[in-house]
Design a binder for these strands. Structure first.
Length: 416
RNA sequence: GCUGAGGUGCCGGAGUGGACAAUCGGACUUGUCUGUAAAACAAGCGCUCGAAAGGGCUACCUAGGUUCGAAUCCUAGCCUCAGCA
């Protein structure tokens, strides 16, 4: 199979935006690309065929979640994620590092039996220098994740792109805390790399799992909102032998200005021939910020999660002034009463399945009565919307009109 | 017609002499969501004054009554449901 390779196709002259292609053993990823999120082995509500039709080249699965359920015995038996999910295109796996952050402050544990909640007194996560002790959100059992262990799990799942186990620094933090977290991430990066190489060398798992394809590893940059730390982290991670670079610890509560600032510090220090991923960012306006700073891929739950909450993406100029439902520029809240008799499609310019066949009134109705179909229709729309935007962005980079597209999108005044 | 049960906020349904503007659901309204414990979560939900703490008013079918005090007890009326005719 083809090895992992990043091909830089075109560098925008007016910005740092770049057009590229990531070659993986399971096919190419056209960049800049939105990476859908399929935490538990599915992009919620959609089939692999639907994802392909929507132009999804790659999506991200979470190691922590897959480790707890279905567990690695199943993974070994079925031969890895590609076979398990029926998806023969590229896959990314997240290391579980984010759960250090996201589970840390949660108080309640969903019980096995359904909708009851069990209150637990102990935190779900405990960080040590060696790794992270998780308590399963399913049954409270303890599990220790180390960089090495995360690498082994990811190797078993056989994704095309792995992420090094990192410590996603919370926000706000003090400088010393952020420094400590960053240093831990660097140490773990080294251990991740070492473990990953070892696994590649011995091919213990690849022989019985998903073939002998090359599995790439991205290192993760931390450093919170501190210039010194971010730059240091960028240099350290870039200096290691990773296949790609991920920027983590952003959009954790710091505000968009700070996030953009971080990217401005970091991206100029990154090697040009290496793909760059931003972990967990992807609101419409963010996308332009990322792309213009030379980010190649980014994953975000926002489009899929919002879809299930009734927030549908829409071109700025199509938002009614009367839609007071949200301050967000590119969303409408289809559950609002004002859409109950609206016979127009969600977005007049959208060519997705949902918009071609159904009115806002129908989608509104399905949300009100909680029909399962609506989660699919909404997710289809949002992913289509964002992937169409990514296509537009890629072609604008190709013909040198990226900045015009940005302006058109971000600064077009809403129709009154 | 007889017998029995009952009428509580938009709906369902607790409460059965003071701690009741009334438990709890649902609906509804608003808000939140960026490497997904998320088809989730949070707040509000009689009217009104207040930034808030808190206050005022009107309320548990209707009309009387008992009581310091009634959604809760008594009387009458109206209505609903179940069984029997």
């Amino acid at each position: 199979m083809a090895p992992f390779r990043f091909e830089l196709l075109h560098q925008d002259k007016k910005s740092r935006a770049r057009l590229g292609r990531i070659h993986t053993p399971h096919g190419d990823i056209q960049t800049p690309a939105f990476v859908a999120v399929g935490t538990q082995g599915s992009v919620k509500s959609l089939t692999p065929d639907e994802l392909k039709d929507l132009g999804v080249d790659v999506f991200m699965v979470n190691t922590y979640h897959m480790y707890l359920r279905p567990g690695m015995d199943v993974m070994k038996k079925v031969g890895g994620l590609h076979a398990f999910m029926g998806w023969n295109k590229p896959i990314m796996t997240d290391s579980g590092g984010f759960q250090v952050f996201s589970l840390a402050r949660k108080k309640y544990l969903a019980s096995d039996t359904g909708n009851q909640s069990i209150k637990i007194d102990h935190p779900l996560v405990k960080i040590t220098e060696d790794g992270v002790e998780f308590r399963s959100h399913w049954d409270g059992s303890k599990h220790l994740f180390t960089p090495k262990f995360s690498m082994e799990l990811q190797w078993l799942m056989g994704a095309d792109i792995h992420i090094a186990f990192d410590d996603c620094t919370p926000y706000p933090v003090t400088f010393p805390q952020a420094k400590k977290s960053m240093e831990r991430t660097h140490r773990w990066a080294k251990e991740s790399l070492k473990a990953h190489r070892h696994l590649r060398g011995v091919k213990v798992f690849t022989s019985e799992v998903s073939g002998n394809h090359y599995q790439a590893l991205y290192g993760s940059i931390q450093g919170s909102i501190f210039e010194k730390l971010r730059k240091q982290s960028a240099k350290v991670i870039s200096g290691m032998d990773f296949d790609g670079i991920a920027i983590g610890g952003v959009s954790v509560g710091e505000g968009k200005k700070e996030m953009v600032q971080v990217l401005d510090w970091v991206t100029p220090l990154l090697p040009k021939d290496t793909p760059r991923h931003v972990l967990g960012v992807g609101e419409i306006d963010d996308i332009f910020e990322l792309v213009s700073r030379g980010i190649d891929t980014f994953d975000c739950v926002q489009p899929t999660r919002l879809a299930r909450m009734g927030r549908l993406l829409v071109g700025n100029k199509q938002i009614y002034k009367s839609d007071k439902s949200t301050n967000r520029k590119f969303e409408i809240d289809i559950t609002k009463k004002e859409y109950s008799k609206d016979t127009k499609p969600i977005d007049a310019a959208c060519m997705c399945y949902t918009c071609k066949h159904f009115s806002r009134a129908y989608v509104h109705h399905l949300f009100r009565v909680r029909e399962l179909l609506v989660y699919r229709l909404a997710t289809i729309h949002n992913i289509h919307f964002i992937n169409t935007l990514m296509e537009d962005i890629r072609s604008s980079i190709a013909d040198g009109t990226f900045l015009e597209l940005t302006r058109q999108y971000l600064y077009h005044k809403p129709r009154g």
